[in-house]
Simulated scan of single mutants.
Amino acid sequence: MHEITFSTVDKPKLLSQLTSLLAEIGLNIQEAHAFSTADGFSLDVFVVDGWREETEELKSVLERGILKYKEQYLSKRHVVSSVNEHYQVKIEPLSNCIAIPSDGTDVWEIDTTQLKTENKVGSGSFGDLYRGTYCSQEVAIKVLKPERVNAEMLREFSQEVYIMRKIRHKNVVQFIGACTRPPNLCIVTEFMSRGSVYDFLHKQRGVFKLPSLLKVGIDVSKGMNYLHQNNIIHRDLKTANLLMDENEVVKVADFGVARVQAQSGVMTAETGTYRWMAPEVIEHKPYDQKADVFSFGISLWELLTGELPYSYLTPLQAAVGVVQKGLRPTIPKNTHPRLAELLERCWQQDPTNRPDFSEILDILQHIKRK
């Protein structure tokens, strides 16, 4: 596995050009994350496999490919590539504590002597999730892998802490505290004993009948409406980030890529997961809270069918289909008419035609009453 990062002046079709370059080399893209800044720069990060030679040789092949693409597509724009072997990322020097904005009204630094880690319940690219206790309360502990820590990851970590400590809602996973002193970086939240909706659907082969589906949709809509009212865009809303507690209350989780919305009302830093991602996000266009509504619509379809969105396509093929061909999941014929109508409105190509979460909540509650 390798992680490849491209930085360049942003331009239309950049993502598709870079993915074509990787495909020509024979690499299989496992993850892709795209970021762009308000002043016109782009950072595209790919996790790939399929390269059997030395890493330095891959870097040389990429550089030759970039030169060819610069001549064909990128004109005089400057492109730089860097390749790191996965799990062997250089650890950058860190200060004694990460700077996280504080208004002085709350204390959230974890007393590690009161934190007890038990069994691992999940693992990701940048961290592991453990079950544990804090001051005798059952908690979930998200621990960052020291070997994966870099400057970008620290920014993401501090952003997640900053956002989570500001929010409190019954349909948002409750933040308890964090350890911000390297190398023991972790975020502690309430423990959600029933796991994610994604695991329930795809690993346990669970089924949501209409009443249960509506309850989940209402729970998520309440949580998302609260976040949007507080100018927070989640940016990675999907069933893997919807967690269930012992009472089957569903809560929105994982704010690693969430952002406080800019005063201008639009965002230009892109991230998320392709199968659930709004077309304007895939295309590097400015976006707002309606990007979360698109992702919610895809997640609601997943609840309805129990299927992975575009399961017959790779994530990148799905992204291209969504943007260029208006591809959307097929709604089953026996779907409740109001629910089918809501799905189609949520994933409209034009974000202004999508409902907001207060309207979605009204529609789902109306269907439930009927």
Rank of each mutant, 00 (worst) to 15 (best):
129 L>Q: 08
78 H>G: 00
118 E>L: 13
154 L>R: 08
63 E>V: 03
66 I>K: 03
154 L>C: 13
154 L>W: 12
62 L>N: 01
120 K>D: 00
77 R>F: 14
73 Y>W: 15
145 K>F: 12
70 K>I: 03
76 K>V: 02
150 N>L: 14
111 D>I: 03
91 I>R: 14
146 P>S: 15
158 S>A: 13
118 E>G: 04
80 V>G: 03
153 M>A: 09
137 Q>A: 11
62 L>A: 03
107 V>C: 11
156 E>R: 15
98 I>L: 10
134 Y>R: 09
89 V>Q: 09
91 I>Q: 11
106 D>N: 01
153 M>R: 10
96 N>Y: 15
125 S>Q: 12
114 Q>V: 03
162 Y>I: 02
77 R>I: 02
137 Q>F: 14
110 I>S: 06
92 E>H: 10
149 V>Q: 11
151 A>L: 09
147 E>Y: 15
100 I>G: 04
96 N>C: 03
131 R>L: 10
144 L>H: 14
114 Q>S: 05
141 I>M: 12
75 S>L: 11
68 K>T: 02
83 V>A: 15
65 G>M: 05
147 E>H: 12
99 A>F: 11
159 Q>L: 06
147 E>T: 00
134 Y>S: 04
122 G>S: 06
116 K>N: 02
145 K>D: 02
150 N>W: 13
156 E>N: 10
139 V>F: 10
137 Q>D: 07
132 G>K: 12
69 Y>N: 04
163 I>K: 07
62 L>T: 01
157 F>H: 07
63 E>P: 01
121 V>P: 04
99 A>R: 06
90 K>E: 07
151 A>H: 08
131 R>K: 10
164 M>T: 06
163 I>C: 07
153 M>S: 06
164 M>F: 12
63 E>A: 10
63 E>S: 05
109 E>L: 07
92 E>I: 10
99 A>G: 00
108 W>T: 05
156 E>D: 09
165 R>I: 03
95 S>F: 13
122 G>N: 02
106 D>H: 14
105 T>D: 06
121 V>Y: 13
97 C>K: 08
123 S>G: 00
148 R>F: 14
124 G>V: 06
141 I>C: 11
138 E>R: 13
133 T>W: 13
152 E>C: 05
128 D>Q: 06
87 Y>C: 08
127 G>A: 13
93 P>R: 15
126 F>I: 01
158 S>K: 07
79 V>D: 04
94 L>F: 13
84 N>G: 01
71 E>A: 06
124 G>C: 05
64 R>C: 02
144 L>P: 03
161 V>Y: 14
144 L>K: 14
81 S>H: 07
80 V>K: 13
106 D>Q: 08
87 Y>M: 13
